[in-house]
Design a protein around this nucleic acid. Structure first.
Lengths: 187, 187
DNA sequence: CTTGACATGTTATCTTATTACATACGATAT
DNA sequence: ATATCGTATGTAATAAGATAACATGTCAAG
């Protein structure tokens, strides 16, 4: 049960200009932050919400969320499955898919369609329409506030009389740290 | 070589309030329109653009685009592959994937991540950042102008210093016609 | 303690996508 | 006209992602 520590691997900037940020920073996945706290809080919130909704946060489900929370990146269902199997849970795809489905339904995790993968939600419980920012440099994923995007989307749909049920907005590019790093490579 | 006719199957509204629309209507996929013209034009533009770019619009590529153009909906790679095989082209996945990749790269088709599928571009050649509207009722797909959404997205990214490379905006819901049809079913 | 709803586990299968390698085609330069 | 090189096509094999169907286990209400 490796409980990975502070600077989450692959999600933490080391370069210059990196500032430590608090839990409410939208782009915190891209910066140094107290990841232990970040994890604990998300887990706690999920537990509380599940309880409040009369749902069961079972061992597989909790562990699945823990696994996703370890890093600020998306994981494929099979990657999650392997981890679960290591921990003594079932070894077959539905085990992972069901837990992930539950987490997504409850808003504790998100599905990143572009990557066919899943990522822990950074703001469980808060109604939000996140825009996903996917860094191709370090694979980190951040959720940016998507209220405005969502609004623009709604308008665009209304112009053609389309009734939106749900939407996904995913952008790939470079996080601040990888922008600093990449040019050296390209040059 | 079935050259599918006017009202594209699955893409054309039959209900009340349906108006015939011109080729420049953003949501035309959801309405009655001259699909033959719509197809011919897109194909012609693609040909011209390929030529202008010094690229080869080979038989598989052209046929692949034709297949996508038949209907205003997304098709899976294997569905396209089957059609290609019928026409005497190769029967293995790379045949379809390569042609589709070419079309997407050249902006003649789009990849709809949410559906793991592909759809012909409604505006080849015109620089545009489409928002995809996917109707769950009839599977039609329309491209709405995404300039504003794109702008909002850019701002959201800038707030966290993220450099967007490309983005996908996909909304699922009901097209005008299916909105009229659905309530009867639900009731 | 039984029952019913829900959760977990397994098998099997399906769909989507890629890697690797062989063959054919087409434009260019001899 | 033909050698050549880059590009396109074809095939086989397999990886990666996802679901259906069914059996078993668990927990809490009655």
């Amino acid at each position: 049960m490796s409980d990975p520590i502070q600077p989450a691997p692959g999600a933490v900037a080391k370069g210059p200009g990196v500032k430590s940020t608090g839990a409410d920073d939208p782009g915190r996945a891209f910066h140094c932050h107290d990841h232990g706290h970040c994890t604990t809080e998300a887990l706690g919130r999920a537990e509380a919400l599940a309880a409040a909704r009369g749902l069961r946060m079972t061992p597989v489900r909790r562990r699945t969320l823990e696994i996703l929370l370890e890093q600020h990146r998306a994981m494929g269902a099979y990657e999650v499955l392997d981890r679960l199997a290591e921990d003594g849970f079932g070894k077959q795809p539905p085990v992972a898919y069901r837990a992930l489905e539950f987490l997504v339904e409850q808003g504790f995790a998100h599905r990143i369609r572009r990557l066919n993968a899943f990522a822990a939600c950074a703001h469980p419980g808060e109604a939000h329409r996140p825009v996903f920012l996917i860094c191709t440099g370090c694979n980190a994923i951040a959720e940016a506030p998507g209220a405005r995007v969502s609004e623009a989307l709604k308008l665009a749909a209304r112009d053609v009389d389309f009734a939106i049920d749900r939407a996904s907005v995913e952008a790939v590019g470079l996080c601040p740290a990888c922008q600093s790093a990449a040019p050296e490579i390209r040059a």
